[in-house]
């Protein structure tokens, strides 16, 4: 079966060093970006940088770049299902309107006196 025919790829320490350096620089960058007021794009930039970092870790540290196709399929399936969970649920919150036309959360102010246990 062709699935077993792949040889192990050894990533060199130099490559690892380059990746960790990039990761540290990106960490600095994300902290820096947080102190700039980008409005609603702050979170977008933070997530973008985090995703770049995660991708580097997956591809190089975890050797996904050199892995067989089915490993990549597993990774993509994981991301896809996470997206299903997040976006399909958020589609409810984004469009939830009650009979008065009030959007989620239906009650903006809850009395201060309500404690932790209602």
């Amino acid at each position: 079966m062709s699935e077993h025919e792949h040889t192990e790829h050894i990533v060199s320490p130099g490559m690892y060093l380059a990746i960790i350096t990039t990761l540290l620089i990106l960490t600095g960058l994300t902290v820096g970006a947080a102190f700039v007021n980008l409005g609603r794009f702050n979170i977008a930039v933070a997530l973008l940088i985090a995703t770049v970092k995660a991708t580097l870790v997956v591809l190089i540290f975890m050797h996904a770049k050199y892995a067989p196709e089915r490993t990549k399929l597993v990774i993509i399936a994981g991301i896809f299902w996470l997206a299903l969970l997040l976006f399909m649920t958020l589609s409810d919150y984004a469009s939830r309107v009650d009979y008065r036309g009030v959007r989620y959360p239906m009650t903006q102010i809850i009395s201060h006196t309500l404690g932790n246990r209602g």
Partner: peptide
């Protein structure tokens, strides 16, 4: 019938 979004 829980009060979730009608569109969803």
């Amino acid at each position: 019938l829980t009060g979730q979004s009608t569109y969803a």
